[in-house]
């Protein structure tokens, strides 16, 4: 499908038509608070340009709380049921491109290994993803530093570039084409293409740090002193994991009500002390230092070794929100840029 334009004044009608076929999830403004991805209803006016986003739309693939199995022990028999998510088509609209790329990382974890996660798979099959490049770049983004962002486009069904009073829409899949079928769109002009290319270049160059993507995972050392320095500052609040579009770690717990048990999963993080604490008291990551190292090596090295993708999309949330100002960009510059300079000198 050729690239198209859609005027911002036509978005309301477009969403209305879309909502007859899909559940639409988009950022809804909440006063002074950042917008939140919600299932929109008639009359909602979501902010699709990405300017109000803070939380990634991860909840719609990996809910914060999800019942995995229900066990009924009434009547002397143990019955186990598996409540899989409802089979309904859903569109996420207005996600930042780095958040959409985050879903590619989730896919590797939940769909790519020996076991497929049936809950995630059911939601993912039903999901169409429309990402956005906002008119103004977020100050904390460093997407182009962690990966070749041109490869990210293939992971979204459609990509909207905010060109002021209109969106420039690139369609990348059949799902995306189906989504936009019949939408009130017009053809693009050379001026529009130039404006879109300019915006893309700006996105690519936002927050470029002094190291190349490849050196990243090769240069992170197990015994780098930086892990100790992060650990000294870190208060293990888990904010970085909670807001992260690629963090997937979860806990599984039982909740009992009478003769019934609900086994649910909920978010967890490698930053918590009891994450790897075993019943007999041994904990392989018993202090903050190995926990700080684990989070960053997992994203930048282990996931690359496992799947060939970098587990960070440079969305910058952890940079913006860390209460003790641990700046992942600084860490990467120190661990990755220095060896490169040395290599250049040799």
């Amino acid at each position: 499908m050729a690239d198209k334009l859609i005027g911002k004044d036509k978005i309301g009608d477009f969403l209305k038509a879309l909502m007859s076929k899909y559940t639409v999830v988009a950022p809804i403004e909440r006063g002074d608070a950042p917008a939140e991805f919600q299932e929109i209803a008639d009359g909602d006016t979501p902010v699709l340009d990405g300017s109000k986003n803070m939380m990634p739309p991860k909840d719609y693939l990996l809910p914060r709380h999800e019942v995995l199995v229900k066990i009924d022990m009434s009547g002397g028999e143990t019955k186990v049921e598996t409540p899989l998510p409802e089979d309904k088509p859903r569109v996420i609209m207005g996600a930042w491109l780095p958040d959409a790329q985050g879903i590619q990382v989730l896919d590797r974890v939940f769909l790519d290994r020996k076991f497929i996660d049936p809950y995630y798979a059911r939601r993912r099959e039903n999901l169409a993803l429309v990402a956005v490049i906002p008119a103004e770049m977020r100050w904390s983004w460093f997407c182009g530093s962690v990966d070749d962002v041109d490869t990210w486009k293939a992971g979204v069904d459609a990509l909207m570039y905010d060109l002021g009073d209109k969106f420039y829409v690139e369609v990348n899949s059949d799902k995306g084409a189906a989504l936009l079928e019949g939408a009130p769109m017009s053809v693009v002009s050379d001026v529009d293409v130039a404006a879109k290319d300019k915006l893309w270049t700006e996105f690519k160059n936002t927050g470029l740090l002094p190291f190349a993507g490849k050196a990243l995972y090769e240069n992170l050392a197990w015994d780098d002193p930086v892990w100790g320095e992060i650990a000294d500052k870190c208060i293990a609040c888990g904010m970085c994991s909670y807001m992260c579009p690629t963090c997937t770690c979860f806990d599984i717990q039982d909740e009992t009500c009478g003769n019934c048990v609900e086994r649910y999963r909920c978010r967890d993080t490698c930053q918590f002390e009891d994450f790897t604490l075993m019943g007999h008291g041994h904990n392989p990551r018993s202090t903050q230092l190995p926990r700080s190292r684990q989070r960053l090596l997992h994203k930048f090295r282990y996931q690359h070794e496992q799947f060939g993708v970098v587990g960070c999309t440079g969305c910058g949330r952890c940079v913006e929100l860390c209460p003790v100002n641990v700046d992942i960009r600084e860490v990467l510059c120190r661990t990755c840029a220095e060896p490169m300079e040395q290599a250049a000198e040799n």
Partner: peptide, 8 residues
Amino acid sequence: VGKCGRCN
């Protein structure tokens, strides 16, 4: 089954 992130 390789999802919860603890045993690496």
